[in-house]
């Protein structure tokens, strides 16, 4: 029984590493920053998630820290890529020529004076 679990875990680890590789390939092939963020974030999140989940099946005694690490990645990874995309759009990193629409009005998000932040 334990043996089967180990093999399933190893296959999951392999699958995760393939996703990581595809994400890296997307990072190289995509034409502009925003598409690169898309390819990179999704693939690295699922890839790392699957790898750690496979390890969890192989070594069940380590469940505590592995579960913590998986939750941590699921929360922080999308947040950091959102913050990065927001900053990049603000400093006008160009979108690719294939882009069909850009509805985010740049004039709306100008500097806000600190007083406004204080009165949250």
């Amino acid at each position: 029984m334990g043996n089967i679990l180990e093999i399933i875990g190893a296959v999951l680890v392999l699958l995760g590493s393939v996703f990581l590789f595809l994400g890296a390939l997307g990072l190289v092939r995509m034409p502009d920053l925003y598409n690169r963020i898309q390819a990179g974030t999704k693939a690295s999140t699922l890839g790392t998630f699957l790898t750690l989940f496979g390890l969890l099946l192989i070594i069940p005694e380590w469940w505590g820290k592995l579960v913590l690490l998986m939750t941590f990645i699921l929360i922080t990874n999308p947040v950091s890529s959102h913050v990065l995309a927001r900053a990049a759009h603000y400093i006008k990193i160009p979108l690719t020529d294939k882009t069909v629409a850009d509805l985010l009005n740049k004039e709306e998000t100008t500097y806000k004076v600190n007083e406004e932040i204080k009165n949250e």
């Binding site: 922080t76 603000y90 500097y111 806000k112 600190n114 932040i117």
Partner: peptide, 21 residues
């Protein structure tokens, strides 16, 4: 004397995530 810089405001998502983290 407090901060008198003009800063871009934080996005709401980062704000919420930081409060949890």
């Amino acid at each position: 004397a407090s901060l008198n810089r003009k800063l871009r405001s934080t996005s709401e998502i980062l704000d919420t995530a930081s409060r949890i983290l």
